[in-house]
Every structure is written in C-alpha cells, then in structure tokens.
Design a protein around this nucleic acid. Structure first.
Lengths: 109, 109
DNA sequence: CAGTATCCATGGGGATACTG
DNA sequence: CAGTATCCCCATGGATACTG
C-alpha cells in the first residue's frame, strides 16, 4: 500500500464506530442514559417518537455491544432498568463532540 | 418542562448532526478529504466498496450541507476536485473522537 | 410495566449500463 | 473522467395488537 493512497478499509475505526453506533436511535438512547439509570417507559417518554419495537431492538443491540446493561428486578409489576456500562461511558466524549459540531456549524451559519 | 425530564426533541444537536452526517458513507468521504483535495475517481479508489451512485449522491448531500465544495475545471477529459469547506473542517475533531472511541473500546475488549 | 408478534412502507443502498 | 439513468433488493423503521 502506497503512502499516498491510504484506503478506508472494512476495518477502520470509523466503520467500527458506525457499525456500533450508527442508525437513528442508538446515540439518543445512550445520551439519555448518560445521566443515570432509566426504565423502559422512561426512555420511551424521553424519546417520544421512537416506537416500542425500535426501542427494544436497539436496547438489545446496545447490550450485545456491551455498551449498556439491563437490570431486571423480577417484580410485579415489572421493573427493569438500563444503564451505561464502563464501555458505554466511552461514548460520552463522542456525543459531546457531536453537540460541539452542531453548535459550531450553526454559529458559522 | 421539568428539569428531570429533558427530552431528546426533534431539534437537538445530536439529531442535527445525525441528519447531516448520518449514513454509511458521508464520514468516510469527509475523512478522505481531510488531507486535501481529491477527484471523483480518486475518492472511489480510496473507498473501493462505494458505488458510483452513492458517491455522487453523497457528494451532492455534502455540498448542500456546505461541508465540501466542488471545483470543476471544465477541461477535457473532465477534471473535478472536491475539498472540505471551513464548515467541513469542523467535522475533523468529531472523526478524531470516533477513532478514539473505537480504539478505547477495543482496548477494554 | 415491559416488552413480543405481526404486518407493512419507505428509501437507503447496490449493479449495471450508458453518456458528454 | 465524471458522472446519470434504471431497475431492484432488502434492511430499517413504523403501526398496531397482544401478553406475562
């Protein structure tokens, strides 16, 4: 590989991050969990336009990526809580940088 | 709105950024342009698995967002170059943070 | 409350051929 | 070289109903 033709291969960090965090909802869910543990219904209330299907599906994806974990108290009525894992907390600087980007972009307007 | 129920509304910076940079290709294109001007064919060569349709489409999207601009020299054979705008350069810290995230994530592995 | 199950629509994305 | 034009697939995402 020549030095002046570095490719964006299938295994570059950008693609890795995109695969883990890409899509419409995952970063919004992680951001909501950045301030602490939340239950399913509370997440749905804070992200009003997400469907239950997508919320459940993305929660599973995030668990599989070890970015959040799930605590089921096995109570009736059900109580289930979601929280960031230590790996999940690694996304917080990235989210902060996204906020910075949007703000600066609009400042340049 | 209560202080303990901040919603992720339709106009939050995360959604703004996702709309502008979301999808499979835009960040990869911007990253390739981070080191300087590139022509269409060179971009395609560096991102081998993108189709011409998607490359052209995403270049248009990025131009519309004022993140890159296009210089057409009106020569034969055609010579067209793409480069980051000043707004486009605002994404570089974000890309850097994505690389950091992926690296740290794997370090924790 | 915390989900599944089901069905369905859209458009993101791809393959290929063609053109100035 | 730098794109368009077509045609097509399927994953993403949504609506609604149902359940332990």
């Amino acid at each position: 590989m020549e030095s002046n033709s570095i490719q964006v291969t299938a295994r570059c960090p950008i693609r890795t991050t995109l695969e883990m965090l890409g899509g419409k909802w995952k970063l919004l869910i992680l951001f909501q969990l950045s301030t602490g543990t939340l239950r399913f219904a509370e997440l749905k209330r804070r992200i009003p336009d997400i469907s239950e299907k997508m919320l459940a599906q993305e929660l599973h994806n995030l668990i599989n990526s070890d970015l959040i974990d799930k605590q089921d108290y096995h109570e009736v009525p059900p109580r289930v809580e979601y929280a960031l894992t230590s790996k999940g907390k690694l996304v917080l600087p990235l989210i902060e940088e996204m906020r910075n980007f949007a703000l600066n972009y609009e400042r340049f307007g």
